[in-house]
């Protein structure tokens, strides 16, 4: 399972930014794919679940790693 997770390192990404990186990845991923976004933008842990909810994707959770957060989403549609 763990090696099926697609990791996007969006640390230091002001533009396009972590959520935009996630949207890009989700569009080309298979349904069922789990995607973990690494972000040091404190807004991401709010933005990403909010978007996932709007777009009908499954928000799995946030894990804090000190300097950055790991935010995980599953593509379900």
């Amino acid at each position: 399972m763990a090696d099926n997770i697609m990791v996007i390192d969006a640390r230091g990404s002001f533009c396009p930014g972590p959520l935009m990186e996630l949207i890009r990845a989700i569009k080309s991923a298979e349904i069922g794919q789990v995607i973990a976004v690494l972000s040091n933008d404190s807004g991401s842990k709010k933005d990403i679940p909010l978007w996932a909810g709007k777009a009908g994707q499954e928000f799995i959770g946030v894990e804090a790693h000190g300097e950055y957060d790991e935010i995980t989403v599953r593509k379900v549609r």
Binding site: F14, C15, P16, G17, L19, M20, I23, D47, L50, W51
Partner: peptide, 8 residues
């Protein structure tokens, strides 16, 4: 695409 007018 995001919840605001620009990504930055």
């Amino acid at each position: 695409p995001l919840g605001r007018a620009h990504s930055i």
